[in-house]
Amino acid sequence: MLRIPCPFCGTRDHSEFSYGGDASVEYPALEAPAEAWLEAVFQRDNIDGVQLETWQHLHGCRMWIVVERDTRSHEIHSVRPAHEGLASALAQSADPVNES
């Protein structure tokens, strides 16, 4: 069982979360050529080691988060909100969840 420290709710079992996928993928602009979309939709690094991935706290705050996790040991190195504005807002405010 993974235990994921949600930046909004605190540490919860991973069964509360839904796995998104590789967070290093950058989706191209809608009008980008098909090759760029092929790369984003189908091609993966499939890292054996520390990777960035998205999860949604589906049965909690329903926020999307970016988790840095080792795919061999399942160790979680960092967690941050996927939305950059929320991430910076959270970093500026004193956050009792992350400090506890």
Partner: peptide, 13 residues
């Protein structure tokens, strides 16, 4: 197991 992994061990859910 619903998430990517190279570990040859399964999760409890």
């Amino acid at each position: 197991d619903w998430y990517k992994s190279y570990a040859q061990r399964g999760n409890l859910p």
